[in-house]
Amino acid sequence: MLSISNLHVSVGEKPILKGLTLDVPAGEVHAIMGPNGAGKSTLGYALSGRPGYEATEGAVEWAGEDLLALDPAERAAKGVFLSFQYPIEIPGVPALTFVRTALNAQKRARGEEEVAAPAFLKLVREASKALKMDFDMLKRPLNVGFSGGEKKRMEILQMALLEPSLLILDETDSGLDIDALRIVSEGVNALRRPDRAMLVITHYQRLLDYIKPDRVHVLAGGRIVASGGPELAHQLEAEGYDKYLLEPA
């Protein structure tokens, strides 16, 4: 279970999250919706430990661990995975090398045996097939020259291989056409498991037609201002975020 209590996060001197409290039990998918500038991406970065996103108050627990005490790589080894809204291009590092390095680093950190190259390639072939990805693309530098859809598939492929237990999807639908959105969503849905929690951050309800949330939360002014079932997303789609913006943050 992910348990966030009274989380305050500043970027530079500027407070962005102002007392965010949220519980996501394992096995559930929770959506975070909110207007631009509400702090949605900040939440993803704060949970994954991005430098410059400083937690000034509050606590974050994941599977009994104090996440805020860990560096980003340690959090990843504990199962935290942030799918980036704009995945980073890394020239000079082939995608295959990157994923294998990451997988083995996580395994080392957990005291598990590393995966040898032949076994790894077998895993990748299976996972890339399921996502309709061209295997040869993975020999290219990570995300360099990939289309928006290819980059998102690459993120899902990494999720499938790294097997995180806490998935944070930051605006995964941005830059995707409807076909790519379907493939990516199917990839995410295939990862739903009773021991896995997912936080789906999105501005639009559209993504939630494909990835059905158990709960929907509205983030505005740095706090969760409303929570409900999937119907809340439809209500937001119809009414917009205006009524939450009127409330003093």
Partner: peptide, 16 residues
Amino acid sequence: ESALFYMQQRGIPADE
């Protein structure tokens, strides 16, 4: 720096 964070987020320690 953003590449560095991306790599760490996937479990690769900072030095590596």
